[in-house]
């Protein structure tokens, strides 16, 4: 097993775990930060798959701008998610 393969398994496991975390977190600010972490891991995965172009775009748009928009949406609405 090479090092890159081991890193890929770690990253893909982390992607699944953080995706579940985004779904189950009730505090929406925490969910937005978890989504930024998801995007960051996605960017590392793109870099390992030798697509540095897509990695830069994913890091800029996914981890940066989407998080800023989500945080501003949370600031203007409620922070907790309610169970109906």
């Amino acid at each position: 097993m090479t090092i890159a393969f081991a890193i890929q398994i770690i990253i893909l496991t982390g992607l699944v775990l953080i995706g579940l975390l985004v779904f189950y977190l009730k505090d929406l600010l925490h969910a937005a930060i978890a989504f930024a972490a998801f995007s960051f891991l996605m960017s590392v995965e793109f870099y390992i798959l030798q697509a540095p172009d897509v990695a830069i775009a994913e890091a800029g748009i996914g981890a940066g701008i989407t998080t800023a928009i989500l945080i501003q949406a949370v600031r203007s609405t409620t922070r907790k998610e309610f169970d109906n």
Binding site: P52, D53, I56, G60
Partner: peptide, 18 residues
């Protein structure tokens, strides 16, 4: 190098969004 106008502009806009 990898990257270009769109990627660099997105990174700059990330700084402004910060």
């Amino acid at each position: 190098t990898p990257g270009g106008g769109f990627q660099g502009g997105a990174v700059i806009a990330t700084g402004i969004a910060l």
